[in-house]
Write a protein that binds this DNA or RNA. Structure first.
Lengths: 193, 193
DNA sequence: CGCGGGTTTGATGATGCTCAAGCCCGGTGG
DNA sequence: CCACCGGGCTTGAGCATCATCAAACCCGCG
């Protein structure tokens, strides 16, 4: 039932059967349809989302109304507006379903309650955040040193599944280039193997 | 003595006097001179560094031997190569002192030991990582939506102290532009108020 | 069958990079 | 005390990459 969730957590910390039960019962399931917003910027979003099925995108909207994809969350990934989560302020990012999805939601109160009942969850979330920082650091380093083409090729290597499942212009947005540029890159890459 | 450290931690979690003592005793002090490497890429770096005095930079070195500043750490900030810390693999980034500095080091073993003695430290580190993610997310969003000039102006707003204390070419590297470009931006900005 | 979002293609232009040279200033040694 | 480095910052000219604007195309869906 929640086996993907528990397996994902167990990949980083040890969990007894009772603890696993306590964890499961802290989440609530939410189904969203493609193109539906899970969280809209400006609203309060004090929860973590775990994607059980489907695909979400976290994105910002700048003053010129352009959207910028911060990251994708397929099955087994977590996503949240951490700013809103921690401070209780309006979210600066939005979260949208790119496919029909099933999401397990964990409210901030339940994070706290769960941490009290299952202390190792505090460690799990620390590890989750820390691995997040690792990939964000690497992403920043790459963004500064690589050309658009190199970034695209690396993304194809690291996350081919996401590239295949996602409309091109979202990939372009994630890479920080325009859809036109990505189209030309793909053309060039497919001709020159 | 370690008051900056304890005050910094207390800004996020409650600490008894005994807990504060346990924390203090887990760190070791290290003094480094300007331009000295605190951690060199390729080495194992399984510790957190807390800057008590001075200024550090975390940076990557790409295949063309260009350096890219990932972030600056002045007094009261933490820095680490999280990748090396978590996985025990060679560090992909380096850490260097930009000024004579005093650093409080916390080894991975002491993180674990401390978490056992002072469980709330697990929560502190989670919060620390989570706030780190918030600023990295914002940085990525800004990098994609702003011009070099806008990024520079924002940096001046957010971290004027760092901009003043740091040689220009490191600021340029942090912003992802060349020193020449930053020089031209500064010229333009100072003439047009 | 036609509409419409997404992708492709083309022409043009801006932003920022590269390469090269000069300048400023603090540190060092004669 | 001063001359001479040398690193870092500035300035200039030319160029590459990528953005912008515009139009055509493709294809799934109503």
């Amino acid at each position: 039932m929640h086996s993907l969730l528990i397996n994902t957590i167990r990949s980083k910390v040890k969990l007894s059967a009772e603890e696993a039960e306590a964890i499961k019962s802290s989440f609530t399931l939410r189904r969203v349809k493609k193109k539906q917003l899970v969280l809209a910027a400006g609203n309060i979003g004090q929860e973590f989302f775990f994607v059980r099925r489907g695909l979400l995108r976290l994105f910002s909207t700048d003053d010129k109304a352009n959207e910028h994809v911060i990251h994708f969350a397929p099955e087994g990934w977590w996503v949240a507006d951490n700013h809103s989560f921690l401070l209780g302020k309006p979210a600066i990012f939005s979260i949208e379903a790119l496919e029909d999805s099933e999401i397990l939601m964990l409210s901030k109160e339940n994070v706290d309650a769960l941490s009290a009942r299952v202390p190792i969850m505090e460690r799990y979330f620390r590890l989750l955040m820390q691995t997040g920082i690792i990939s964000l650091h690497r992403r920043i380093a790459n963004a500064q040193s690589q050309s658009a083409e190199q970034k695209y090729l690396e993304m194809m290597e690291l996350y081919p599944d996401i590239v295949i499942r996602t409309p091109q212009h979202y990939i372009a947005s994630y890479l920080g280039v325009t859809p036109e540029t990505l189209s030309r890159i793909r053309k060039k890459v497919s001709s020159n193997p």
